[in-house]
Design a protein around this nucleic acid. Structure first.
Length: 904
DNA sequence: GAGTTTGAAACT
DNA sequence: CAGTTTCAAACTC
């Protein structure tokens, strides 16, 4: 309910944003000089928006405004990494004024979009979005921002997506520019897609796919969401354009969803919705966004308009939602709302989006974005379904192909999309939804019917799984899985469907299945029981600590699960992680230190390599990314930023590293992780909140102790961003900061100041970054919000690079992720951790949290440099270069420590 | 399709 | 926390 109004607001905001957009457009045009980097335009827009927007952004905005000039600041709110991403680039560009070449994207966008207004709007919307988001974030920070962040999946997705999306957009734009036709088509596609989507939603709403799976715990919510998602999906199904668009859209959708979810759930207030709209407007830049948003809105609207349809749409999603418990929970609240009111536009949940996306992908036609497992937070199930790397690549191709005009672009987009999706979807998407959609079409109907009433109502409780015994294979052609449970009644994690938070569908060959909408209560209870035992049980198993996707999207794109990791890690002894027995392998992710596998030969990445290699690679990536600039996904950016920051820090001062060092209790990390995971997990939003609160607590603890991030899992598994955010939010809340918001604002406010202190900020950033884990902690711990901000500041201040700035925004999450990933060893972090008042707020600024922490009076633990010195390969991975130049041994040591630790 | 292998989940 | 059992998927034939 809350959301529904908000969305409208958002829409309204969009209008306002439109004005901003105009400005942005202008800005964009100017900066557009650098077509290659689309970002600038957005950035400029963003900046412009900021300046004007301030009013909007309550706390944050102000800070932002102040920052506006220092665009990045807002990033601090990471919240919207996506936003930030979108905004970031623009901001970065703006902040730097014409400096940033990122404008390329802008230029592309601006110039490209025949409907410049639209595109520009969309872009502009980004800034606005950003502002809004930031505002929202800040607003909610106190309460829900944390949550917002908390929802790891959402966050991650959001974060990831944005970057990717941005990139994609940029790429798309570029392509478009290259070929006006393509651009036109794209635009038209977008518009069409939007329209189509809307139409589809209305039309297809239920689509065949819908049925597939219902969210377990969140059944209702999920259902609703799913419905919405399905509505979208069908669209794709309907037309190739749609497909293409989808590819583009999906990311946007995902983002929107994520945003919606995160925002909705957390905020439910409306900021998100705004976001959504903005993105929609921005569509061009992010076609997906536009589409996504519109779609989401549409779906909601449609729903509103057509209750039945809406329901149907909602149904569509059902299957996914593992985490989605979160989504589900969120959805539940929201969905319920929808059901009740059917009003909430918001209802579209990220999970849904994801699901929808996935399904699309999964659905043959929508290869566009195959949800690759890589996605953070994905359940293995989803992952499994997720397209194999190879497939992913192919999918990208398909998409490109399918997307006629967009071809090359589309392919790129797709890839990026996929990457994003991975990250995003990972949590939510189940391959299933995609896969099953077709087969499940009929199921969908059933579910839809049920959904309409209520998820539960589903009058047609699908007969307990139709035993379509599809051989052993769990996955359908589409890649959707079906379970074949015989004894578990599909109420245990043995059941992929259940584990994924989805209902069993017809394709399932399960026996005595109780994982049906009919048995919602049972399902929910069971879920709760399981969660009581293991809160993370339904959390995505795969997390992307750092998805480099963006930067090297083309290269690795989906294929390389590089960053993604399995939370728990595998325990393979005979399969050598070369068979699907291995969850890591199954998810197309490399093994990490968290794995206890023996003789790991995981083609996606050996555990051993992971530790040593990953970091280095990340550095390299960073460098490359930096060079690449616009394209860098924010993960990459983050990495880069982190690496750079680290380097800078090292160079500038080894200071921060100590921060990282703070070994927050693993517990903290866990809690965080959990929060992230959990939050995302299927459980209700409440849970999310609770988790957030818990996290906050943990964060508090962290403050005290600066709990260390859990090394492996935290890093790899948990969606750092979300975690971090959560923690941050928590921190904010927990922290002395008068108000989280304040903290946020303060952070921002501080940010500007910090900007002045650029060097400091850098240092701090560097410190933060240095600590891959530490950085995370930073954020997670006290700094989180501020860190982001700080990062943004840093960027701004550093001016060094708008890119950096963007990256930073992106980074924060990435950093966190990275840090987290490697972090396992992080704990190791220098024993010499000392509590140090956070470096200047500025530094901390990086970690707004720090600033916040400072404000809060928190103490940051500084690790003794000595500890860092160890340059285990791990070290290299992340901080190498920086360290090298600078002494940042601290980092390296951490890494070194990290690496070993985990495995042990 | 049946049977075996495998590793996660669940249980003790 | 470790060990064992249960379970279902993955795999082989």
């Amino acid at each position: 309910m809350m959301d529904s109004p908000e969305p409208s607001k958002n829409n309204n905001g969009s209008s306002s944003s439109a004005s901003t957009l105009n400005n942005n457009n202008n800005n964009d045009d100017a900066p557009s000089s650098e077509s290659p980097q689309v970002q600038e335009s957005p950035f400029l827009r963003f900046v412009k928006t900021l300046s004007p927007i301030p009013t909007k952004a309550s706390h944050m905005t102000q800070g932002c405004v102040g920052l506006s000039s220092p665009p990045l600041v807002f990033k601090s709110p990471r919240i919207s990494h996506r936003e930030t991403q979108l905004t970031k680039r623009p901001q970065g560009t703006q902040s730097f004024g014409g400096v940033i070449p990122q404008s390329v994207n802008e230029g592309n966008r601006l110039g490209e979009a025949p409907g410049d207004s639209r595109t520009s709007n969309s872009h502009q919307s980004l800034p606005e979005r950003f502002i809004n988001d930031t505002q929202q974030v800040f607003d909610f920070k106190n309460d829900e921002n944390t949550q917002y962040y908390s929802s790891p999946s959402c966050i991650d997705k959001y974060l990831v997506d944005p970057g990717d999306i941005d990139q994609m957009y940029s790429a798309d734009q570029d392509v478009q520019q290259q070929s006006t036709d393509a651009a036109e088509t794209s635009l038209s596609d977008q518009t069409h897609s939007k329209n189509n989507i809307l139409n589809f939603d209305r039309k297809d709403g239920p689509g065949d796919k819908v049925e597939e799976s219902l969210p377990l715990s969140e059944d209702f919510n999920k259902v609703h969401l799913e419905k919405a998602a399905y509505g979208e999906e069908p669209e794709k199904m309907e037309g190739e354009k749609n497909d293409v668009e989808w590819s583009s859209q999906e990311p946007a959708k995902l983002e929107s969803i994520l945003a919606a979810d995160g925002f909705d759930k957390r905020y439910s207030h409306g900021p998100l919705p705004q976001w959504m709209p903005n993105p929609l407007q921005d569509v061009k830049g992010c076609e997906d966004y536009n589409e996504m948003v519109p779609t989401s809105h549409v779906t909601a609207e449609n729903i509103l308009q057509d209750g039945s349809e809406a329901t149907l749409k909602h149904h569509g999603i059902r299957r996914r939602c593992l985490q989605f418990g979160e989504a589900a929970s969120n959805a539940l609240g929201r969905n319920v709302k929808l059901n009740a009111a059917s009003n909430t536009m918001i209802t579209v949940k990220p999970s849904e989006l994801v699901t929808s996306l996935c399904p699309r992908r999964g659905s043959g036609n929508f290869p566009s974005t195959s949800p690759k497992p890589s996605g953070i937070g994905l359940h293995l199930n989803s992952i499994i379904n997720a397209i194999p790397i190879d497939q992913a690549a192919t999918t990208g191709v398909r998409l490109s192909d399918s997307s006629q005009g967009m071809k090359s672009t589309s392919s790129i987009r797709l890839q990026r999309m996929e990457n994003v999706k991975r990250s995003i979807l990972s949590s939510n998407v189940d391959g299933r939804s995609l896969v099953d959609t077709r087969t499940e079409s009929h199921e969908i109907d059933d579910t839809v019917a049920t959904d309409t009433g209520n998820s539960e109502d589903l009058n047609q409780p699908p007969s307990p799984c139709k035993k379509k015994k599809k051989t052993s294979v769990t996955a359908d052609d589409n890649g959707c899985k079906r379970c074949n449970c015989k004894k578990s009644k599909c109420l245990k994690l043995y059941c992929d469907c259940f584990a994924a938070g989805t209902y069993c569908t017809d394709p399932c060959a399960c026996q005595g299945c109780l994982n049906r909408p009919e048995y919602v209560e049972t399902v929910v209870e069971t879920k709760q029981q399981i969660e009581s035992r293991n809160p993370i049980a339904f959390a995505p198993k795969i997390v992307q600590p750092t998805t480099d996707i963006s930067s090297h999207m083309d290269d690795e794109n989906l294929t390389t699960p590089s960053s993604a990791r399995h939370k728990r890690g595998c325990n393979c002894k005979r399969s050598m992680c070369l068979k699907k027995y291995c969850e890591c392998y199954q998810a197309n992710v490399g093994c990490s230190s968290g794995c206890r596998c023996e003789g790991c030969k995981n083609v996606h990445g050996k555990k051993e390599d992971y530790v040593a290699f990953g970091h280095t690679s990340s550095k390299e990536r960073v460098s490359s990314i930096v060079e690449e600039g616009s394209d860098c996904t924010f993960h990459n950016k983050l990495e880069m930023v982190a690496s750079k920051t680290v380097y800078d820090l090292h160079c500038l001062s080894p200071i921060t590293p100590s921060l990282q060092c703070s070994d927050q209790g693993k517990e903290d990390a866990k809690s965080r992780v959990i929060s992230g995971n959990y939050l995302p997990s299927p459980e209700s939003d409440v849970n999310m909140l609770a988790s957030c609160t818990n996290y906050t607590k943990s964060s508090e603890n962290l403050h005290g102790s600066e709990a260390l991030l859990d090394t492996n899992e935290m890093l790899g598994n948990t969606p750092y961003d979300s975690q971090i955010e959560c923690s941050d939010a928590a921190l904010l809340q927990l922290t002395p900061l008068p108000n989280p918001e304040q903290s946020g604002t303060s952070s921002f406010s501080s940010v500007p100041n910090e900007c002045a202190k650029i060097t400091h900020s850098r240092l701090s950033h560097g410190c933060i970054r240095q600590l891959p884990g530490g950085s995370l902690r930073w954020r997670s711990s006290p700094l989180t919000p501020s860190t982001r901000v700080g990062e943004a500041q840093y960027l701004q201040c550093s001016e060094s690079d708008s890119k950096l700035f963007d990256i930073l925004e992106n980074e924060t999450p990435d950093i966190l992720k990275e840090a987290s990933t490697p972090m396992t060893s992080v704990k190791v972090n220098s024993p010499t951790q000392k509590r140090v008042s956070p470096p200047q707020s500025c530094h901390i600024g990086i970690g707004s949290s720090s600033s916040g922490g400072l404000r809060s009076g928190r103490k940051f633990i500084l690790k003794a440099v000595p500890t860092f010195p160890s340059l285990s390969p791990c070290i290299n991975s992340k901080s190498n270069g920086d360290e090298d130049s600078c002494n940042s041994p601290s980092k390296s040591p951490l890494k070194a420590n990290e690496c070993p630790q985990r495995e042990s």
